[in-house]
Amino acid sequence: RGLGVGAALVRGLEGAAAQLGLRAVDLHAQTHALGFYERLGYQAYGPEFEDAGIPHRAMRRVL
């Protein structure tokens, strides 16, 4: 954490998605990680839900 590895991974995946012609990336983020994804331009939508007993929110970033 704090080394930029996570952000670099997300940006790499976004680049691959853009090369495939995708216009947006959607993900399910654990609620404690919302801030991380928000700093990368993702916006939460819809209600909170549980996955594997952990609260999550759907998020999207238009590429």
Results as ranks from 00 to 15, higher is better:
R1L: 14
R1F: 15
G2F: 15
L3T: 13
V5N: 08
V5P: 07
A7D: 10
A7W: 01
A8C: 05
A8P: 01
R11D: 09
R11H: 12
R11N: 03
G12T: 06
L13K: 09
L13R: 06
E14R: 04
G15K: 09
G15F: 07
A16C: 05
A17T: 02
A17H: 00
A18R: 15
A18Y: 03
Q19L: 13
L20P: 01
L20T: 06
L20C: 09
G21I: 03
R23H: 02
A24W: 00
A24C: 07
V25N: 00
D26A: 07
A29D: 03
Q30N: 02
H32T: 07
H32C: 08
H32W: 12
H32N: 10
A33F: 04
A33G: 06
L34G: 03
L34P: 00
G35S: 12
F36R: 04
Y37V: 05
R39K: 14
Q43R: 15
Q43S: 13
A44N: 07
A44W: 03
Y45R: 03
P47H: 01
P47M: 00
E48V: 14
E48G: 04
D51L: 14
D51R: 12
A52L: 13
A52G: 02
G53F: 12
G53C: 10
I54Y: 10
I54H: 13
P55G: 08
P55N: 10
P55D: 05
H56K: 11
H56E: 07
R57Y: 06
R57A: 05
R57D: 05
A58Y: 11
A58I: 00
M59T: 02
R60Q: 09
R61K: 15
R61H: 04
R61M: 03
